[in-house]
Amino acid sequence: MGEFTGRIRIDRPAAEVFAFLSDPTAMPRYLQTVNRVEQRGPGRIAMEGEAHGHAYHDEGWIKLEPEARRMRWGSDRMKDYGGEMEVQEADGGAEVSIRLSITPDPAVAKQMEQESGAVDHAMRLAMERTLGAIKAACEGVDAAPDAPRSADDLPDSRPFGSSATLNPDI
């Protein structure tokens, strides 16, 4: 099982960043492979998306720890997959840390090696993309303006949308 970590500084208050990240339906805004997330009851979610050219549907668990600004998750289908995201105060803004544990399916690992040279390198790139997309969504800007992206890939113009705050003007 591979362990991957990353962190990024965000120029928004930590409470607002956690409010955004702790809403599972916001995941498609920062997880490139996720198209849709649906809550299936307390602590349960279902996700649909496409990864490495294959559509997927997965269900799993999610645990929010608002007092620690921490979120943990795992998959029902992939028993060796799980992660944790934590948001901390940092110099007038926030720092988001992610820890991911995963062993890719052998066919996916082979494709990752072909595309990126090594599974670890592919996972580091994916982590960087995810952290950049979180920053872009929270700050309301494109994380990599020179990267080729379609209009559908850009973050919403409002950094948190209506799900993270009751103030629609944010």
Rank of each mutant, 00 (worst) to 15 (best):
P42T: 06
G82D: 08
T103S: 04
P42R: 15
A143G: 07
A109D: 01
D58W: 07
L31Y: 10
N35C: 09
I8G: 01
D142H: 13
P168C: 04
D76E: 13
R69N: 09
R149Q: 11
R44S: 06
L100W: 11
K79Y: 03
D152K: 15
E86W: 01
F160I: 07
V96F: 00
G41S: 08
L64C: 07
E115R: 14
A147R: 15
R44K: 13
D23A: 15
S150N: 09
W73R: 04
M123E: 10
F18W: 11
D156K: 04
G92H: 04
K110S: 10
M123L: 15
L100E: 13
H57D: 03
N167E: 11
I134F: 02
P66A: 10
C138W: 10
L64I: 05
N35L: 05
P104C: 05
E67F: 08
E84R: 13
L64P: 02
R77E: 14
V119N: 03
G132M: 07
G132P: 03
S75Q: 07
E128T: 12
I62C: 01
E59W: 09
K63F: 03
P66H: 11
I8F: 08
I170C: 05
A51I: 02
A144G: 03
D152M: 13
P106I: 00
V119S: 06
D153Q: 12
E16H: 09
G6W: 04
F20A: 14
V17D: 05
M47R: 14
N167M: 05
A107N: 09
M127Q: 09
M71N: 01
M112S: 03
G53P: 03
Q114A: 10
E16D: 14
H121M: 13
V108W: 03
S22C: 12
A126L: 09
L100K: 06
A147K: 15
L166H: 15
H52Y: 15
N167P: 05
F20I: 02
G93T: 00
D91L: 05
R69F: 05
G2L: 14
I98K: 08
V17W: 06
E115Y: 02
P66N: 09
V96S: 00
S162F: 11
S162N: 13
A122T: 02
E89M: 07
G161R: 11
L21T: 07
G74F: 00
G140C: 04
A126N: 10
L31G: 02
Q32N: 13
